[in-house]
Structure formats: structure tokens, C-alpha cells
């Protein structure tokens, strides 16, 4: 028995070392201001470019992003996780943060988005319209109703009258996209901007009802902001001409 226990020891050391090593990458910081922007997963591509352009205009500022599902980000903010700016994929998640008294200003809408159907390039199930997704033998992946893209999916079902029968409800729009990209689902509902970003890895099947279900993306500086002025400058940048141009390039609507 003692020998067996001794054998377990190097493994424990290895695991501990791995844990320590994985934590070592964090915490590198450059001189100047670091702005932390918490943004919805669907903003990943557009806000990366937004950040680069903003940094070019403000050389002393480094913009760091945390892209995740809006619901998760909202909860993190409510728990006091900090951050300078929050950009949400719908108003419901922003309102949660507002109710918690965590925003420093009235949130402002900066972009709109809508859903589309994406299928793998080969379109194995021959999907041509939203109504095709109701068929039994079509495996459809959607967002969970708890997250913004899932809430939008439910509204699409109401507006169009098409009842979906998904094989999986993902927590993040990017997970839906991934399942379609790798051909593990016949179809998925994602934002038009995600479909755009995926390029020719997916094919888009647009449907009329999507025009009637738009998500409004609000953003606001946070009460906990370490650099309120820079945060406000970033918000203005996103809402300004250059920001709107970037957002439109990635397929968003701008108010």
C-alpha cells in the first residue's frame, strides 16, 4: 500500500506544477492606461478592430477585451468583477447590470443585429427556408433561451410560427457557429454578423421573419471603471463615425 501511495506523489506534483504554470502568463502589463472592455461574444471580430483603431488614436492606451456571452458578463459585473466598459448583445442583460447600479451612465444603443440560418457549405440537409428546420431529420443547433441569441431565436419562432426541435442549446452564439462549421449540425441560428465573420465556412439561408426580430446592442461605461475618461472616449469612438463604419463592415446595423 505504501508503494502505491508513493507512486501517486509525482503525479500530484505534476498537477500542481501545471496549475502554477498556467497562472504565470497573466498579469503582464505595459506602461500607460489599460482599458478593460467586456463585450458580447458576437462583437469579437468588430471590437478587435475597434480596439486596434482606438489604440492607434490613443497611443498611451491598451484596450483589453473579454469576449463572452452577455449573460455571463452581466453576472460577472454584478458580482463586482470590475471592467471599464460593457457592451451587451441585448437590452435585457444591460438592464440587469443597470438594476444592480453598476453602470455610470445611461446605456446607449450603438448597433443592431438580427438572426440568420447558417448551414455547412455542402448543405447536407438541403435547407432552403426557415420552415425546413422543423423537419425531424434535420439536426438544428440554437442558443439556449437564457442568452440573448436564444431569446431572439424564441422570438423568431413566435413571429414565424416555425417550431424548432434543436438537438442542442448552446450557451454562446460562437458555439452554435462552430457546430455548423465543422458539419456537426445541419443548421444553426446565429447573428448575421457571425455568419459574415465565418466567411465561406458556412452558407447563409436568410428568412423574412428575421427582419422583424432585431437585437439592440447597448453599451455603457461602468461604475467600477478605473479610467472613466478613457472609457467614455472609447464609448464615443464606438458611437462615432469611425466606429459605425467598422460595425457596418462586419454586418451590424447602426442606429
Amino acid at each position: 500500500m505504501t508503494r502505491a501511495r508513493a507512486r501517486g506523489f509525482p503525479l500530484a506534483v505534476l498537477l500542481t506544477a501545471a496549475l502554477v504554470a498556467s497562472g504565470c502568463g497573466a498579469g503582464t502589463r505595459t506602461e500607460g492606461t489599460t482599458l478593460t472592455v467586456l463585450a458580447a461574444a458576437s462583437l469579437t471580430e468588430s471590437f478587435r478592430e475597434m480596439g486596434e483603431r482606438f489604440e492607434r488614436a490613443h497611443p498611451d492606451v491598451e484596450v483589453r477585451f473579454n469576449f463572452q456571452g452577455s449573460a455571463l458578463l452581466a453576472e460577472r459585473i454584478r458580482q463586482g468583477a470590475g471592467g471599464d466598459v460593457f457592451a451587451s448583445a441585448d437590452r435585457a442583460m444591460m438592464n440587469r447590470v443597470v438594476r444592480a447600479g453598476a453602470v455610470a451612465e445611461r446605456p446607449r444603443t450603438f448597433a443592431t443585429n438580427r438572426l440568420t440560418v447558417v448551414v455547412p457549405p455542402s448543405n447536407p440537409a438541403g435547407v432552403r427556408a426557415l420552415s425546413d428546420l422543423a423537419a425531424e431529420d434535420v439536426s438544428v443547433v440554437v442558443c439556449a433561451p437564457r442568452v440573448p441569441c436564444g431569446a431572439a431565436t424564441e422570438r423568431v419562432e413566435t413571429v414565424s410560427g416555425v417550431r424548432l426541435n434543436p438537438v442542442s442549446e448552446e450557451n454562446d452564439v460562437k458555439d452554435v457557429l462552430h457546430k455548423v462549421e465543422v458539419g456537426e449540425a445541419d443548421a444553426g441560428l446565429v447573428y448575421v454578423t457571425d455568419a459574415e465573420a465565418a466567411g465561406d465556412k458556412v452558407r447563409t439561408v436568410d428568412f423574412p421573419a428575421s427582419e422583424r426580430v432585431t437585437n439592440e446592442y447597448p453599451l455603457a461605461t461602468l461604475e467600477a471603471a478605473e479610467h472613466p475618461d478613457t472609457a467614455e472616449a472609447f464609448v464615443e469612438f464606438v458611437r462615432g463615425d469611425r466606429g459605425r463604419r467598422i460595425l457596418r463592415e462586419y454586418g451590424f446595423g447602426t442606429p
Binding site: 438537438v167 442542442s168 448552446e170
Partner: peptide, 18 residues
């Protein structure tokens, strides 16, 4: 994946509910 009753085990349900 994650679907109630089929694949959504407790840890997945915790994450979804969170």
C-alpha cells in the same frame, strides 16, 4: 452539446442557469 433530459447533466445545467 446541451439539451435538457438528453445531454444537460448537472454541471451543464449549473452553467446554463448561471
Amino acid at each position: 452539446g446541451s439539451l435538457r433530459g438528453t445531454t444537460r447533466t448537472l454541471p451543464l445545467a449549473v452553467y446554463t442557469e448561471a
